[in-house]
């Protein structure tokens, strides 16, 4: 093969014309070639004029060119390599999204690359998704804590130690009988309070580090949510057994206490009886 033909070979736009030139050189008519390859005359013409879109598909175009080259005694490999650039990719992709890729693989392009690049977005999306989910959960958990932190202590309340619970049945029954009035928000009779507080104060004097209008003491684990008059969430969390919380905001408060029988609530140092508001352990009420 001469230098000149080599250079024309490297041109991509000449697969059909190279075949045609070779055919004419061998003195074969299109009809003869068509009869040998069992193809229609128009199909041979389409190949020779590089109109591959009129052939049934890229797989067949490649196969026909290979057969044609073999018939003419040409080396099919360089022709097929040049053919790649001439094949109508779009048509095949639309009709055959999946198979088209595979054809590329069989021709020596690397599958690992194709596949890893298709996987990369999935991994990135997964990581972002995880980030969003965990970020959201973290933010949600942080949320109720912050208002409690930046509320300044409003008022020092004479604290009542949980030890005083021994006396509490007395006070709660007393208050229940004394004030059946539903609106009575601070129903604690002065007598009951008086009996409770004095016994306790000496023991509890060193503790009031934190303070607030409302004081919650949990004897058992309980869920508490309180909104103040501005609709601000003052607290919303699960207080572990033995925990104590001081919160403050602007009255009236809207409260929800998950485990009311196990929770003591004090408003400005006075105990609030939860029994009237409690339905199946949960107390939901408003407090002025």
């Amino acid at each position: 093969m001469s230098e000149q033909t080599e250079s024309t070979m490297s041109q991509p736009h000449g697969v059909g014309s190279r075949l045609k030139a070779r055919r004419e050189q061998m003195g074969l008519a299109i009809e003869q070639v068509a009869a040998q390859l069992k193809l229609a005359k128009k199909q041979i013409e389409a190949i020779e004029s590089d109109h591959y879109s009129s052939l049934p598909g890229n797989t067949f175009a490649r196969g026909f060119v290979r057969n044609y080259a073999k018939l003419l005694g040409m080396d099919a490999a360089p022709l097929l390599a040049d053919l790649e650039g001439l094949l109508p990719t779009e048509r095949a992709q639309v009709a055959l999204p999946s198979v088209r890729e595979e054809v590329g693989v069989s021709l020596g392009s690397t599958l690992p690359r194709v596949s890893s690049s298709s996987r990369l977005p999935a991994v990135v999306a997964g990581v972002i998704g995880f980030g969003l989910v965990f970020g959201g959960v973290w933010w949600y958990l942080q949320q109720p804590v912050s208002p409690q932190l930046d509320t300044p202590p409003v008022e020092v309340v004479a604290p009542v130690d949980p030890v005083a619970e021994v006396a509490s049945p007395v006070s709660s029954t007393a208050s229940a009988t004394a004030s059946q009035v539903a609106v009575a928000v601070v129903p604690t009779p002065a007598a009951a309070a008086a009996t409770v507080t004095p016994t306790v104060t000496p023991a509890a004097t060193p503790t009031p580090a934190t303070s607030g209008e409302l004081r919650l003491v949990a004897r058992g684990e309980t869920w508490v949510q309180i909104f103040d008059a501005d609709g601000r969430r003052v607290i919303s969390e699960v207080i572990p057994a033995g925990g104590e919380r001081f919160v403050s905001g602007r009255a009236p408060y809207r409260l929800k206490i998950g485990n009311a029988p196990q929770t003591r609530l004090y408003l400005r140092g006075k105990e609030v009886d939860l029994a009237p508001y409690t339905q199946v352990n949960v107390a939901a009420f408003e407090l002025k």
Partner: peptide, 28 residues
């Protein structure tokens, strides 16, 4: 081709066609 009078082509890399096709199906 001679026996049927139809065009016949040999697939690219015929030895691996079946396994590549199965792999394709796997992705499907």
């Amino acid at each position: 081709m001679e026996e049927t009078g139809l065009p016949v082509i040999v697939a690219d890399d015929p030895l691996t066609c079946v396994v590549r096709g199965s792999g394709r199906a796997l992705e499907k």
